[in-house]
Amino acid sequence: MKPIIEGLAYVLGDSIDTDQIIPAEHLVYSLTDPEERKLYGKYAMSGVPANQQGLPEGNTPFTKADAYASDYTIIIGGSNFGCGSSREHAPFAMKEAGCEAVIAESFARIFYRNSVDGGFVVPFETRQKINDRIKTGHRLTLDTTLGKLTNHDTGEEFLLDPLGEVAEILKAGNVFEYARQAGLIESK
């Protein structure tokens, strides 16, 4: 986990389910083949209805039609982000597109867990609603150590909820490295 994550915001609404993050028809590509896996970056967030893509304006695809990576680094969501299926392809696709962190009022359990255990994106919760105070394209800095988000376009700062025990897994890189460091499985 990087101590500082900087980049542009991509803002979404409530209940972004995993079918919206990566539609089921795309779950067939290899996650290991270096060329084929790029398709996950291409289709990340492609299931979000057009008028909800990149709020408040909408109609702003996360990844442009001819690209495999997104211009946006930090996703700002609402409540119950990542609900629905258990597909780990969802946080994988976000990472493949270049996303590094997602900040939401609440997360669905399996998405949150997959993000952490696979070391894909850093999921921060915030008790206050912030997806109506940040616009898609705003320049953000996320201090993952302090749990502080700065919006450089408005000057606003937001204090996020502490990561708690999962910070150790994120710091280790993924659950395998965490388990090795804790002596729960043998070192490679």
Partner: peptide
């Protein structure tokens, strides 16, 4: 699979996870 919770109808603990947890 997220609907692994179905099996709980038989008085067991069942839940869905991602690929990383399953590989572990």
């Amino acid at each position: 699979d997220s609907h692994t919770c179905t099996s709980g109808a038989f008085g067991l603990f069942s839940t869905g996870v991602g690929n990383t947890d399953a590989a572990l």
